[in-house]
Every structure is written in structure tokens, then in C-alpha cells.
């Protein structure tokens, strides 16, 4: 299909050039020569008029309006997550692969050392957390498992961590629950007239960085159209 058809006469030449005259990108000698041909050839003129109708129909703006802001928030959340933990983003890995093929590696020995240090740090941290968990929970090992029922007392959540969120309008209850479980959040107020919900987070969210990480995770969800941190005072 990509074989270029031989151009043997002015009509064929016109047939190949008309689209570029129609979209305003044919200039100079080629445009002048085509205009001269169109002035004397009714068949090509008819083809030009038909092409112009096609161009104008395709160019016409439809009724859809696309909001860039929520999509941009998702992009920034993705950038933030990828730059904190690059190996989690497959596109980042593909890009790293391209770069590795097209440019020499930088300081491989320094990278290897950093990875070893990181691995050692993770092992030490895991051992420390294990000890802490054993120390805190060992007296209750014999006690029955904890279940939450509808009659259980309500859990308490961090008093400072709040977010205002707008969910996609056709979100199912199941998907909403998944979003909330994914970031350990609960709806504490809303929806407002503008369908804004206020979310509270668990007690683990005690610093601005932790809150920002949860907000970033929310922004990365396709079910979430808008997220911003909220003050703990006042309405959502």
C-alpha cells in the first residue's frame, strides 16, 4: 500500500497535492502551479471542494470538553512515585533500557555499592521491625484473633490527615471500597453539592510527607478525578 503511484499527468499531480493545499501547508511554486491547474480543470476543482469539506468536517470541534488538570495530577503522581521507586514503573524500566543501550553506564561500581548498602539497610530494618513486633505482640499471642463486626467500636484515625476528593461519577461501590482500602482511608464527610468527599486516614499518617504519599497514591487512581489536602477544621 505504501508504493508511490507514478504521477503521469497534471490531474494525478493535483490529486496528490490537493490535501496539502487544503490544510494550508503547501506553499511556493507547488501551490502556485496547483492553483493555476484548479482554475482551468473542473474535475480537479470538484475534487478540491470535496476535500475541503472533508478537512472542515474533521477540523470541526466536537461537543466534548477535556479537562487537563485532573489528568495532569495523575501524571505528577506517577512521576513522584516513579522517581521514589523507579523499578515500579514499567515505562521507566523501558526508558532505562533505551538509555542503557544508547549511552555508556555511569559509575557502575558506585551503583553496585549503593545497592549493597540499600540491601543491608533493608535487612537491618526488617530485623529491627521483627523484634519490635515480637516485643509488642508476644503477650497477646494466646488471645483470640481480632475481628471487626458491625457492632465493633469505631476505629480511630489520625486527627490531622484529611483530603478532599472527587471520585468518578460512575464509580461502583466495590471500586470505591478498593480505592479507600488501597490508601487506608475512610469517608468522614460528604458528598457536598459539588460531590466532594472528605477522607480521613489512619494514625500512620502523621507527617506531611506521609499525607502527600497517600494523596499521590489517590491521584494515581483512574477512579479519582481530584485530590487536595484538607484542613481539619470546617466543612469539606
Amino acid at each position: 500500500m505504501d508504493r508511490h503511484p507514478p504521477i503521469t499527468n497534471p490531474h494525478d499531480e493535483a490529486a496528490h497535492s490537493i490535501p496539502w493545499l487544503v490544510n494550508g501547508t503547501l506553499h511556493g511554486e507547488a501551490a502556485t502551479s496547483l492553483r493555476e491547474h484548479l482554475a482551468v480543470c473542473s474535475r480537479c476543482r470538484e475534487s478540491y471542494e470535496s476535500e475541503k469539506r472533508l478537512y472542515e468536517t474533521m477540523r470541526a470541534e466536537g461537543p466534548l470538553v477535556f479537562a487537563g488538570e485532573p489528568s495532569f495530577q495523575k501524571l505528577m503522581a506517577r512521576i513522584e512515585i516513579a522517581e521514589r521507586a523507579p523499578s515500579m514503573d514499567p515505562a521507566y524500566e523501558a526508558l532505562r533500557g533505551d538509555r542503557a543501550r544508547s549511552s555508556p553506564r555511569r559509575n557502575p561500581s558506585r551503583t553496585a555499592i549503593a545497592i549493597r548498602w540499600l540491601a543491608a539497610a533493608v535487612l537491618i530494618e526488617s530485623a529491627g521491625l521483627g523484634l519490635l513486633a515480637w516485643h509488642q505482640h508476644s503477650p497477646s499471642l494466646a488471645s483470640p484473633a481480632r475481628y471487626e463486626t458491625l457492632a465493633s467500636p469505631a476505629r480511630t484515625y489520625g486527627t490531622n490527615a484529611r483530603a478532599r476528593v472527587v471520585f468518578r461519577s460512575n464509580l461502583s461501590l466495590h471500586d470505591l471500597a478498593n480505592v479507600l482500602h488501597g490508601v487506608d482511608a475512610h469517608i468522614i464527610d460528604g458528598p457536598t453539592d459539588a460531590n466532594v468527599y472528605t477522607l480521613g486516614f489512619d494514625d500512620q499518617v502523621s507527617s506531611p510527607d506521609q499525607l502527600e504519599a497517600r494523596l499521590a497514591a489517590l491521584r494515581a487512581q483512574s477512579a479519582v478525578l481530584f485530590v487536595e489536602p484538607a484542613s481539619t477544621h470546617g466543612a469539606p
Binding site: P19, N23, T25, L26, M58
Partner: peptide
């Protein structure tokens, strides 16, 4: 090609 030329207005 059609979309790039007619919808977005790019040259050949």
C-alpha cells in the same frame, strides 16, 4: 496521516 493532516493541520 489523515488525522495528522486534517485534524491537527500538520504539513507533509
Amino acid at each position: 496521516v489523515l488525522e495528522l493532516a486534517y485534524h491537527l493541520g500538520h504539513s507533509c
